[in-house]
Nucleic acid binder design. Structure first.
Lengths: 130, 130
DNA sequence: CGGCATCCAGTTGGATACTG
DNA sequence: CAGTATCCAACTGGATGCCG
């Protein structure tokens, strides 16, 4: 996407949202932010993450970690011992991403009730017959 | 984060990420942020949005607008004229959401190259035979 | 003009079984 | 322990056609 020959439109839309697309595709998925949050405090082993993040499957934890590693957001360190020991830690880049998300987290927390209320009101209007 | 409920590693994960889940599910999809960005400046008609957002289908524009409306992020105003005229505008809540996303947008813009580099390096390591 | 209904392809993610 | 491989269900989103 760095060749960016898209540039068409005389207008906005391309400016902001397209640039966040990559980040949103990563952070917007089901587990990434959860992993990033845990790793922001300390390093974690695979099995510890698996136990801590309730509901995640081995497969999804692996995939999530791989993608975050690929984007340079965390490091994967394999200790050649028996049994194997693999530790995951956020990179500096990963930490700054976590910081950059905090406003959105705060917004979510602060407006959760208002959103829930809006949804209820909308649904009440939409399906009065049900 | 001024809330500061900094608990130890027992059951974090529920604290932060779960609260953003709703917002991420909305904003993290393919078109919502694009719509929010356009509406942040002015009101738009349906057909204008359809023309402006290149690649979006009628179906997805409708669905995106409906969900944002349901969450109280935008208003839908139908003008009873012929031909029909429907206008969409951000609510104050919608504007604050757009503001809350800006740090993430800035982060994306500022670190795009680093991420792209990390990906290239990772891929080069992973598939040297291809 | 501003939708909605239907159909369909691609992707996401869960369950399970197996491995170095 | 830390994965990989396979299969499969659910959801997302695009294309098309119809309608008030």
């Amino acid at each position: 996407m760095e060749d960016g020959t898209r540039m068409s439109a005389s207008h906005i839309g391309e400016t902001t949202a397209c640039e966040v697309r990559d980040v949103l595709d990563r952070v917007g998925d089901k587990w990434s932010l959860l992993v990033i949050e845990l790793l922001d405090h300390e390093t974690w082993r695979f099995s510890a993450l698996l136990r801590e993040i309730e509901g995640i499957s081995q497969r999804m934890l692996t995939r999530t970690l791989r993608q975050l590693e690929r984007d340079g957001l965390l490091t994967r360190t394999v200790h050649p011992v028996v049994p194997p020991r693999v530790e995951y830690a956020l990179t500096p880049l990963g930490h700054t991403l976590f910081d950059a998300i905090q406003p959105l987290v705060a917004w979510s927390r602060g407006n959760r009730d208002e959103i829930a209320g809006a949804r209820d009101a909308y649904d009440a209007r939409a399906e009065p017959a049900l």
